[in-house]
Amino acid sequence: MSQFTFDAEVRTEIGTGASRRLRRAERLPAVLYGADEAPVAITLDHNKVNQAQELEAFYSQILILNIDGKKVEAIVKAMQRHPYKPKLLHIDFQRVKRGEAMTATVPLHFINEEDSAGVRAGGTVMHLVNEVTIRCLPQDLPENIEVDTLNLNTGETLHLSDLKTPKGVEFPNLEAGSDNDLSVVSIQPPKGGSDEEEGDTEADSEQTQE
Results as ranks from 00 to 15, higher is better:
Ser2Trp: 08
Gln3Glu: 10
Phe4Ala: 01
Glu9Ile: 14
Val10Ala: 10
Arg11Tyr: 05
Ile14Pro: 10
Ile14Thr: 11
Ile14Asp: 08
Thr16Lys: 10
Gly17Ala: 15
Ser19Val: 03
Arg20Ala: 12
Arg21Met: 06
Arg21Glu: 09
Leu22Met: 10
Arg23Trp: 05
Arg23Asn: 06
Arg27Asn: 10
Arg27Cys: 05
Pro29Glu: 03
Val31Thr: 11
Leu32Thr: 09
Leu32Glu: 04
Gly34Gln: 00
Ala35Asp: 11
Ala35Gly: 04
Glu37Asp: 09
Glu37Asn: 05
Glu37Ser: 06
Ala38Thr: 12
Ala38Asn: 07
Pro39Cys: 02
Pro39Ile: 02
Ala41Gly: 12
Ala41Tyr: 05
Ala41Cys: 13
Ile42Val: 15
Ile42Met: 08
Ile42Leu: 08
Ile42Glu: 03
Thr43Asp: 12
His46Gln: 13
Asn47Lys: 11
Asn50Cys: 04
Ala52Lys: 00
Glu54Pro: 00
Glu54Met: 09
Ala57Trp: 03
Phe58Lys: 00
Tyr59Ala: 04
Ser60Gly: 10
Ser60His: 13
Gln61Arg: 14
Leu63Thr: 03
Ile64Gln: 04
Leu65Ala: 01
Gly69Trp: 11
Gly69Met: 13
Lys70Glu: 12
Lys71Tyr: 05
Lys71Phe: 05
Ala74Tyr: 02
Met79Ala: 15
Gln80His: 05
Leu88Pro: 02
Leu88Val: 02
Leu89Gln: 15
Gln94Glu: 09
Arg98Cys: 04
Ala101Asn: 08
Ala101Ile: 09
Ala104Met: 04
Ala104Arg: 00
Val106Trp: 12
Val106Leu: 13
Pro107Val: 12
His109Thr: 15
Ile111Gln: 01
Glu113Ala: 12
Glu113Asn: 03
Glu113Gln: 14
Glu113Cys: 06
Glu113Gly: 15
Glu113Ile: 07
Glu114Ala: 14
Ala117Asp: 06
Val119Gly: 13
Arg120Asn: 15
Gly123Gln: 01
Val125Leu: 14
Met126Phe: 08
His127Thr: 11
Leu128Phe: 06
Leu128Ala: 08
Asn130Thr: 12
Asn130Ile: 13
Glu131Phe: 07
Thr133His: 09
Thr133Arg: 14
Thr133Lys: 13
Thr133Tyr: 05
Leu137Val: 13
Pro138Tyr: 04
Asp140Trp: 05
Leu141Gln: 03
Ile145Arg: 00
Glu146Leu: 09
Glu146Ile: 05
Leu152Ser: 01
Asn153Phe: 11
Thr154Phe: 02
Gly155Lys: 02
Thr157Phe: 07
Thr157Gln: 04
Leu160Thr: 07
Thr165Met: 15
Thr165Val: 15
Val169His: 01
Glu170Met: 09
Glu170Asp: 15
Glu170Ile: 02
Pro172His: 01
Asn173Val: 04
Leu174Pro: 03
Glu175Gln: 09
Ala176Ser: 11
Asp179Ala: 10
Asp179Val: 07
Asn180Cys: 06
Asp181Glu: 03
Leu182Tyr: 06
Val184Phe: 03
Val185Cys: 02
Ile187Lys: 03
Gln188Ala: 15
Gln188Thr: 14
Pro190Trp: 02
Gly192Cys: 11
Asp195His: 07
Gly199Val: 08
Thr201Trp: 03
Glu202Ser: 05
Ala203Glu: 13
Ser205Tyr: 08
Glu206Gln: 09
Gln209Asp: 10
Glu210Leu: 14
